[in-house]
Design a protein around this nucleic acid. Structure first.
Lengths: 247, 247
DNA sequence: CAGTGGTCTAGACCACTTC
DNA sequence: AAGTGGTCTAGACCACTGG
């Protein structure tokens, strides 16, 4: 049994989480079997019950454990995949997982006033401008999606300076390095046909269907930091999302 | 200032959460303003700091507050809407919010072997059967979606008995009342054209686009409890989803 | 009944931010 | 230095589950 290191700068509850995660992922703890009780973990790892509970509570929240009052704490069945926001919209991550090589082209990066839809989503006044980034996303050099992203101007000025970097990379990574850290995203999507420009860029027929997606991204404080529109042809790309019930 | 009741059967941390929620929603605490510090809350409500922290931690998790080490705890900007799993797939809830009257028709409820896709999603052996529910969803009596749901048989037998109830109601509600409580759902979707049967039932042209959606639902323990396929015409229905980054 | 998780207390020391 | 949140302790009593 591994021990927790008090000399380790990582918190004890975090070290305990890692130990339990590893035992679960390594298969030492089968699904629906009970892990040691809280008093047992207290004795085994020489920490207080509050520390044990902080570790367990976070693992429950992450979907690895579930508790039953009066019975014990049990291992969840393994999940197919936990898709996070960054994985969903970072084509790099998602495409690599599907065995494809991600890439992209940055067409336009400009400072504009923005439509009313965009200004409302970003909660901007009529005077403020937005950064507009137009991108074609590719997988194995085949175009799989067309995206236009809008960022609030004064705040995302740093992203504007470095816009060239997002051609084949993650816009979210660039934003995060400039202090605009995505935390929550609201998606709206529907089946649709491409516009003429989209059909041309994606090299598809104008009656070929696809998904039209709108996304507003917020930081931890609830402030909007990006608004994105995109079109993804059916035959080239599909989406995967995981939702958890909020209690 | 409201006080917490120790005679109240509700836990103190829960009562404190409700008080803070109300102050935030009533606008007494503006976005990005600091709430009282943890020691202040301890003094104001006569509870221990651990109790205060349990309340605050849950509110942070629910997206109403954010913390900054060394600075304080602040109110998030209000969100457009927090869509949960049940709201997303419960047409009743979602359509009512959009000012429409939800309804539905249950076509078929039968016990079948199920395709390999279905059996794999529900992790069933070759011998086990599935309950198949075929439904047309309507808004103001106009068909907006076609869905087929599959439930694991021995476990969902109670749902099978009461299948008639889901015609215009929520399948998730019925499942929950039979002990199959949805906790996590994995969605996969893409733009697509309807099958002949879908076009006929939805009364749309066969070249009209829409969203094709697959969804596997899991309970708290990670066990699959439902697999659903559906088609939703573009012109009739669009989807809204909120995702939060997992840290 | 014993064992489990759920709630709660009253402290303590630390790291971080601000002045 | 003072105030904030982050981590941790060693207890306590309760509600729920199972034999």
């Amino acid at each position: 049994m591994p021990t927790l290191e008090r000399s380790n700068p990582l918190p004890l509850y975090y070290q305990l989480k890692e130990v339990l995660k590893q035992q679960i992922n390594a298969g030492h703890l089968a699904p629906h079997t009970a892990i040691p009780s809280e008093p047992e973990l207290v004795a085994q790892y020489h920490v207080s019950r509050a520390t044990v509970r902080q570790a367990l509570t976070e693992l429950v929240h992450e979907g690895l454990l579930y508790r039953q009052h009066g019975r014990g704490t049990f291992v969840c069945e393994p999940r197919v995949q936990q898709h996070t926001l960054s994985e969903l919209t970072s084509f790099s991550e998602e495409l690599r997982r599907r065995g494809k090589r991600p890439g992209g082209l940055l067409f336009v990066s400009e400072l504009v006033r923005g439509s009313q839809t965009v200004r409302e989503a970003l909660r901007l006044t009529d005077e403020e401008q937005v950064i507009r980034l137009e991108r074609l996303r590719t997988a194995d050099d085949e175009p799989v999606g067309y995206e236009v992203a809008y960022l609030p101007y004064p705040r995302a000025a740093g992203v504007y300076q470095r816009a060239k970097e997002v051609a084949d990379g993650s816009l979210y990574d660039l934003m995060a390095s400039e202090g605009l850290v995505p935390y929550l995203a609201e998606y709206s999507f529907r089946g649709d046909a491409p516009t003429d420009r989209e059909a041309e860029l994606l090299r598809i027929a104008s009656d070929e269907g696809g998904v039209r997606l709108e996304c507003t991204t917020f930081d931890e404080t609830g402030a909007p930091i990006a608004f994105t529109e995109g079109f993804y042809p059916s035959a080239r790309y599909d989406f995967h999302v995981t939702l958890r019930v909020t209690k």
